[in-house]
Design a protein around this nucleic acid. Sequence first.
DNA 1: TATAGATTGTGATGCATATCACAAAATAAT
DNA 2: ATTATTTTGTGATATGCATCACAATCTATA
Lengths: 225, 225
Amino acid sequence: MQTDCRNCPFKTIATSMLSECSLDQLSNNHLELKLKKGESIIKQGTYSTNVVFLRTGLAKIHIAGPYTEQIVKMVNAPSYLGLPTTFGSKINQYSVTAVSDAEVCYIDLEVFQNILDENKEFTREIIQEFCKNELESFNRCANRTQKLIRGNMADAILDFADKIFKSDSFTLPLSQTEFANLVDTSRESVSRVLAEFDKDGIIKVNGRQIDILNKKSLILVSQNG
Amino acid sequence: MQTDCRNCPFKTIATSMLSECSLDQLSNNHLELKLKKGESIIKQGTYSTNVVFLRTGLAKIHIAGPYTEQIVKMVNAPSYLGLPTTFGSKINQYSVTAVSDAEVCYIDLEVFQNILDENKEFTREIIQEFCKNELESFNRCANRTQKLIRGNMADAILDFADKIFKSDSFTLPLSQTEFANLVDTSRESVSRVLAEFDKDGIIKVNGRQIDILNKKSLILVSQNG
DNA sequence: TATAGATTGTGATGCATATCACAAAATAAT
DNA sequence: ATTATTTTGTGATATGCATCACAATCTATA
């Protein structure tokens, strides 16, 4: 299915800087797909020469660790996916899976590379993106390894509220097992800490529905455990 | 001090793809410095608009975690340093420190950006580099958080041997405290595990001199703890 | 609407490793 | 050389959290 990228209402900042010509090239060389919650977008170990544009929806990036699957981070639209793994190697080095219904566009690497070559502003934005990701990656890793579970859980909840849903009330798009993989802990601990936060009046938990009641406390927990 | 970058024998793959013109631009717009072991190259929290080229020597990238300083990774020459933090923000988001005597070139961000704009091949290589780093970052984080100390220590030792020194005999360029910050553990544990590995005949430890005696065992420990 | 499978809640136990506390070496500074 | 400072070795103790075990829900699917 080919749609006109010029009129796509879901452009990233980078994409909005493309020349008409490059947008046309994109239009003619992408495959648009509607995915349902839980469907795979990129699969680790699989051969691929496509960059993916997440047009709408929410996805998790996850990687097979030495013992368990680790959720590296959550990504919401609009965003490019799989740049590191597609540029770096023909075999995908991590997986991306939709955690909500989503629309994605598969773009051939050669086309993407060509667009990079021809659009300086676009390239700058993409490089900015890489830099931001690398910094976030450093910080996330330092936090995860140094903070106690309560701190990491608080971080994750704040992240969902501020970065993903932009609201202090939301329904977790992950099971407790997945949530555990995101904050590097066990499923049981997730359950316990969520109950603790609820008992302390910091959040209200109702199934997967989470309402932040006392954000200041939550930030304090994030800082001190 | 301005030297001619054309004749610099320490180019990265990326740099070797620059046009004569861009090389001249580099030559006229960089500051070359000789640093001694322990001296700071980039300092977190400090204002900077320079990209750094590590011409010779070995450096550590480190970041202030919530509780302790974490060594993110070791980098040896030739390599660019500080791209993520310089592109992303004017304030350095992490530190880089020489752990051996080193030569570095400071390049103004504007000049570097201009060189990116004018050299497609160079840009491709730099992007490749970003991709490689991000993948490594994902894996390093998954390993660090999931593996036990012995596994992470084994990884670090193998990394020094294979990636940094390209030899199974080397002297650690870090104190045990720093080594602990690299593998996310305590100084005491580093001491103990090093003694264990020695006792088991996997490595020979003599002060900071390390000789890998049984690489297969070391790899096994890396995989299974 | 019944039934199987997945998800969640919660106690009891064990373990890896941090922390504390010093002593012994090794380096650096005077 | 001598003293001060940093680095390292090693035992004892404490603790955060994983793991195990099983019951209670909740959710798909026949």
